[in-house]
Design a protein around this nucleic acid. Structure first.
Lengths: 155, 155
DNA sequence: ACTTGACCTCAAGCAAGGTTGAGGTTGAAT
DNA sequence: ATTCAACCTCAACCTTGCTTGAGGTCAAGT
């Protein structure tokens, strides 16, 4: 009883704060996995909680499930992921997070500068960058938030 | 010709980089408005470009269209919005942006700390805050990103 | 007059990320 | 032995944020 390694979907839901329906959905998408009992009920290993933590964190940053799934597929799968496995994974994510934060900061900066001078216009300040996190994927670079800072001279 | 104040939906699309269908969609949602010609075609005033810039910027930060629409409804509507109108609006948004950035930073920090020690677990580090921008709405407060920083002692 | 491209409406479809409900089983406790 | 919450599947539905297509009009050039 001290370390029963398996939990039910309900327990997983309770512990993670994620609805049972969502958990089943995640499983259907391959984000988490489970063993089945003789009676066809799901049993999750406890490290699934970590996976879910990772999923929710990633979602909050705006990463789509598919991409999260790709990332998670880098984890071992058979053996329980080690601390290092997680560390490697999250290191990658920290890069994404950093990028995202920088983007937001540029945005905020741009908003300050450009609105202060009244030129909140797309063609000049290029505040509207169509991409976020997904940016890592495509080869085609889209117009970025102002190479030089602000939109100073033209406004 | 120097200052024809009105543009067609196609021109608006071209200048903003937003698809015509999306522009019509925005109009249907009340995010932008247009006058109609005798022949029932849309004509937009040029400051619509600013609105669209604002919309796209806001979307990038993860704000849903409804909320953006609420914000935009604070703009005059009859008279063309002045610089100050925009400034007021964007000041509000900067607050949101700041919050969002802070959240991300807490996240990154949490990711560093908690993963370094191998305890990426929901119940301890509470990295999984279900809400973002939407947080302003619900009365029920969900578990927040660590009151104290990190997950130090328990890990 | 006629062609052509840009415009119009309205309905349907799509993708993501789930939730809801019907109808049926399991399993732990009484 | 029975009960009853918790589990199962599968299909349908929901919201957001658009796109696509059918069927029709408008306006400018030849």
């Amino acid at each position: 009883m001290p370390n029963n390694p398996e939990i039910t979907v309900g327990q997983l839901s309770e512990r993670s704060g994620v609805a049972v329906s969502a958990l089943r959905f995640y499983e259907s998408k391959g984000l988490i996995r489970s063993r089945r009992t003789a009676g066809n009920q799901r049993r999750f290993s406890r490290d699934t909680l970590r996976r879910i933590a990772f999923i929710r964190v990633s979602q909050r940053v705006g990463i789509p499930l598919k991409v999260i799934q790709d990332a998670l597929s880098a984890l071992p799968g058979e053996r329980t992921p080690t601390r290092e496995d997680w560390a490697r994974l999250s290191a990658r994510w920290q890069g994404e997070l950093d990028d995202r934060i920088k983007q937001l900061e540029r945005l905020r900066h741009g908003l300050t500068e450009c609105i202060a001078c009244g030129c909140l216009s797309l063609d000049r300040c290029a505040l509207s960058n169509p991409d976020d996190v997904a940016a890592a994927r495509g080869p085609g670079s889209r117009l970025m938030v102002a190479p030089r800072d602000g939109c100073a001279p033209s406004c």
